[in-house]
Amino acid sequence: MINRNLVKALRYRYVLLAVGLILLAGGLVLLPKQEKHKGITSAELLSNAISPERYMSTDEIAHKIVNQDPSILLIDVRDSLNYQKYSLPNALNIPLPKLLDDNSMTFLNQDQYEVVFFSNDNFDADKAWIISNRLGFKNIHVLKGGLNSWFKTIINPTMPEENMPANAFEQYRFRKAASMYFGVVYPESVIQQSTEQKKVPKKVITVKKKKKSTPEGGC
């Protein structure tokens, strides 16, 4: 008996399935719509934004510029007036309001270059970084301290005091050499040049020590 009833009900199985499909599709139309926003989740964005991983130091950038590292792409997010006054060598100018233009997208949404944002300090550059991080762009960094820190550390480095550790002097030597590369002239270097003209100027080869990083992993 049960079997016969089952068969009777199953005679309408295709109709039932068809109705089911239409109901499901109709449900999609009736569902309350909420506007979707692009980007990684806010929790992820926050944890990315809190971490200082995005910062690159001025020394790092100077080293890369001096060695003409082809993989970095410096982006000045200040307005074009300030950009024309002074900017890092080979920097591109994408003023912050134009960050989301299609033209800028080609530079941000790619994986060939390490993009470095900078502004006078890192306030505006951080804004640009957060927006691009939400959109999920990879390889984007911020110059720590911006151009102000660039001036303080690279263009006009302060001489370390006598009692400072040796690597402070080493760093100072590198910074001084870098500042000369960027056009700063020191009185003592001029004298040296005029007296020891014959001498081949010593090449400053700065070998960046790799930071030791403990291997991560585990199972």
């Binding site: 295709y14 068809a18 499909l21 239409i22 499901l24 599709a25 999609l28 139309v29 569902l31």
Partner: peptide, 18 residues
């Protein structure tokens, strides 16, 4: 056009075709 409406019409169209 809204994809949701499109799916509904597509479904009805499909079932009529069957």
């Amino acid at each position: 056009i809204s994809p949701y409406w499109f799916i509904l019409f597509f479904t009805i169209f499909g079932i009529i075709a069957f």
